[in-house]
Write a protein that binds this DNA or RNA. Sequence first.
DNA 1: AAAACGATCTACT
DNA 2: GTAGATCGTTTTG
Length: 193
Amino acid sequence: MNEILERAFYDRDPAIVARELLGKILLSSYEDRLLTARIVETEAYLSAGDEAAHGFKGRSARNGSLYLEAGHAYVHSMRQYCLLDIVTEGLDVPSAVLIRAAEPLEGIDVMIRRRRVDTLTSIASGPAKLCQAFAITRTLDGIDVTSRRSVLNVLSAAKLKDEDIAVSGRIGISKSKDHPLRFWIKGNPHVSR
DNA sequence: AAAACGATCTACT
DNA sequence: GTAGATCGTTTTG
């Protein structure tokens, strides 16, 4: 039975949390409709030595949520879109896991309408697409994802086997910067872009 | 006040 | 595989 993941789950090294978030269920609601999707791609941003991490240059007016306790959402904008992170480790430690892609399960018609696309694989096959499908915007920045009262939660799910998960270290995805860690599920259609 | 910079996406070749 | 769109945020003058 699926339960909301508690703070202790996120209060660990982001690389571990990124690995263990794979297969977990993202849960939200939009206009009284239930939205769920299975997380299939994540990326860890470390608190130190990771120059691509938003906390690398210290606090700024917009990255404050990154310094909250583990289990809070850090929603920031990239180009004209929003991206969702879940904060890891303790208070004042700016590490997080970026939720990169998910496989839609429930409320697919709602997501398709929101995304204005017609194929299942294009609904949430990227961090900004996922946020658009789930109606995740900056207004959710800083909410506690471990609270039952929040509109956004992550549910536990059957544990994945190691052989079902592909791990890539130090892969350059933005041309200029190396990213310490990235995980995905083998053979998932959302991965190939 | 202006300019540069992306943890991106879409469309097209 | 890459060009271009497009905008919130940060950096610079």
